[in-house]
């Protein structure tokens, strides 16, 4: 703009100062605390160097939490993307634009629900005696089905809720992405007698490779926050079979021992992992 104006400074400064203070103070504080031996019962801590980090790597529960978090990532990101692409293509291919729009609104209902609500709704649906999702099994076999108390199925059952929320939502985004594609390549492929699935596998999806990869990255970061679902549905149990990193950090810092510094060490490691993933997305999105 030609004429000098104070607007950019007046408009930007307050927001940026507030954001910087609110973001940097806790971040720096988290790093500082992670080098101390603070506990909830004791307000002051001593500097202990890398002790917390070293202790973490010989902590079997921490290693378990990493494994659980990694399986959670793989399951939720993988199935979310599969469902999203599958349903997105079906929305684009099988129904009229009118129906499409109605379905698109219905498909974002799960993700708008508070996660506590979603977790409770499904926890009750999977209730071994009164649940509506376990009812068919019970009616046929006469046995109750308790998926959330079984270490083998608990994580998958909670993941189902996450995929239910995000897979349906992302299918709407995939639909919108398909709608932005030019129609000519589709027509050309059809003239060559390509089958419907071939058109998508060889024409449409390769054209959407970049945004789909970005979506997967967004889901990866979002999946790091499994806490609300797991807290309400299993609290990390049975045993520690669904104890993810944030669940373990929470129980170390608050429930069991109040080891704030130890929990902070875990939080810092999660922050580093997230920052790396986020920087990669940002770089990709710019290309």
């Amino acid at each position: 703009m030609k004429n000098k104006t104070t607007l950019p400074w007046v408009f930007l400064t307050p927001a940026m100062v507030v954001l910087a203070v609110l973001a940097l103070v806790p971040t720096v504080c988290a790093i500082v605390i992670s080098f101390e031996d603070r506990e909830l019962s004791r307000p002051d801590g001593n500097f202990v160097g890398f002790d917390n980090y070293l202790a973490l790597f010989s902590d079997r529960r921490f290693v378990n939490a990493i494994t659980v978090s990694l399986s959670w990532e793989v399951i939720t990101v993988g199935f979310t993307m599969l469902i999203a692409v599958g349903l997105g293509i079906l929305l684009f291919e099988c129904v009229s634009p009118r129906t499409r729009n109605i379905l698109a609104v219905l498909f974002i209902v799960p993700v708008i629900l508070p996660r506590v609500s979603a977790a409770f709704v499904w926890k009750f649906a999977f209730h071994p005696l009164y649940g509506i999702a376990t009812y068919p099994y019970k009616a046929i076999t006469g046995q109750p089905l308790d998926l959330l108390s079984n270490p083998l199925t608990a994580l998958g059952t909670v993941a189902l809720v996450d995929v239910w929320q995000w897979g349906l939502f992302f299918s709407v985004i995939v639909l919108k992405l398909l709608e932005t594609l030019p129609p000519q390549p589709f027509e050309a492929a059809r003239l060559d007698h390509a089958r419907a699935w071939e058109v998508y596998a060889y024409v449409a999806l390769p054209m959407l490779k970049a945004p789909l990869i970005s979506l997967a990255f967004v889901k990866m970061i979002e999946s790091l926050r499994a806490f609300d679902l797991i807290y309400v549905m299993t609290r990390g149990g049975p045993g520690i079979s669904t104890e993810t990193l944030d669940m373990y950090a929470f129980s170390q810092g608050f429930i069991e021992s109040g080891r704030i510094s130890y929990a902070s060490g875990m939080a810092v490691l999660m922050m580093i992992a997230t920052s790396i993933a986020f920087t990669v997305i940002w770089k990709r999105a710019k290309i």
Binding site: L12, P26, I33, M266, V268, M270, F278
Partner: peptide, 27 residues
């Protein structure tokens, strides 16, 4: 850079800011 900074905040793990903030608010 400002946009990068703002968007990166959206992706901070909540547990990572909640622990230090608890200490700060307690103090």
């Amino acid at each position: 850079d400002i946009q990068f900074f703002v968007l990166s905040l959206r992706f901070l793990p909540p547990v990572a800011i909640a622990i230090p903030l608890m200490v700060i608010w307690l103090q």
